Computed example of a mutant assay.
Amino acid sequence: MLIHPQIDPVALQLGPLSIHWYGLTYLVAFALFFLLALRRLKHPTYANLGWGRRDIEDLLFFGVLGIIIGGRLGYVLFYRPMEFLAEPLRIVAVWEGGLSFHGGFIGILLAMAWFAYRRRVNWLRVTDFIAPCIPIGLASGRIGNFINGELWGRVADPALPWGMVFRGAGDLPRHPSQLYQALLEGLLLFVLLWLYARGPRRLGEVSAAFLIGYGTFRFIAEFFREPDAHLGLLGLGLSLGQWLSLPMVLAGAALWGWAHRQPRSAV
């Protein structure tokens, strides 16, 4: 049985400025997106569009706004609506923590729609471009959750070699679900999508693969993650994260079906 290391959430203190590990993992995620997106520019589809470094910078800028605004609003609406309704000014207090992936995902979709409108390019062409660049950044964020000792897993069999006791979660060993998610939704999904997106694909296929892949891996990982204490398990014994992931899988399957009805000229 392992004990979660008590890591100071502050990585660096510069006078009154505190730089947190979790914030650094977000910076790593954004940097990785930028580097991977530069590699994606070499794909014939995007080379023919004439995209360059400036377009990647704009994608990243709009994406960061989408993540922060959408992630915060998603957390408020999905997880703690009544609490923030009572104190609406706390909605902007992002420094207190509280971001939802599914809310951030919606925010990114809206941000990419705005980018597509400004560039007069098909929205799915944009989402196909960014999809393979996202999972590795998600892995970085989950590593940040692990460093903070938050979002821990459900109680595990004491015989599990990597079962871990998290401070604040009692004395029983738990699944390090943050690492499960980093491996599934992050590393594995990245490898699969990156390899898949290298070939010629119909419009929307890569986006569909991301929706199906992330939704499936998140649904699986949630079986090992402790549900939010104030929510618990919902209908059919599923967590809120699982219920929010199901529409992603269904939307991905629908998009996949639509993409495969398109002519090859849409590649």
Rank of each mutant, 00 (worst) to 15 (best):
G213Y: 02
G213H: 06
L195P: 05
L184E: 01
R167V: 15
A182L: 08
A197H: 05
L179Y: 12
I212T: 13
G153R: 07
N145E: 06
S177A: 14
P200N: 12
D157C: 08
P161A: 15
W152Y: 11
G199D: 03
L172E: 04
I212G: 04
S207Y: 06
G163I: 11
R154C: 10
Q178R: 10
F190D: 01
S207L: 04
W194S: 02
G170Q: 14
W194N: 00
N145S: 03
G215S: 11
P161H: 14
F146C: 05
R202Y: 09
N145C: 04
G168E: 03
L183H: 10
N148A: 11
L211Y: 05
L211T: 07
M164E: 03
P200W: 07
R201V: 07
S207I: 08
D171Q: 12
R201W: 05
M164F: 15
G204M: 08
Y196T: 03
R167P: 06
P200R: 13
L211A: 01
L179N: 10
N148G: 08
V206I: 15
E185W: 11
N148H: 10
L192P: 03
P200Y: 13
E150M: 15
P200L: 12
A169Y: 13
G170H: 15
R198K: 15
G153E: 04
G168I: 01
W162I: 09
L203F: 06
G170C: 12
W152F: 12
P158L: 14
E205I: 04
A156K: 10
L160F: 15
L188E: 01
Q181D: 03
I147P: 00
R198L: 11
A169W: 07
R198A: 04
A182R: 02
D157L: 13
V191P: 02
L195V: 15
G213T: 07
P200M: 07
L179A: 12
I147V: 08
P176N: 09
H175C: 10
G199P: 03
S207K: 12
L179D: 05
M164K: 15
R202G: 01
P176Q: 03
G168D: 04
V165C: 11
L187T: 14
A209W: 08
S207T: 15
G186L: 07
W162G: 03
P161S: 12
L184A: 07
L189M: 04
L203D: 01
M164R: 09
L193Q: 00
L184T: 09
I212R: 08
R167Y: 15
G163P: 02
L179E: 05
G153K: 09
S177D: 06
L193I: 12
F166G: 00
A209P: 00
Y214M: 09
F210L: 08
Q181P: 05
A197C: 07
P158M: 12
F210N: 02
G204S: 09
A208R: 00
L193G: 01
L184M: 08
F166Q: 00
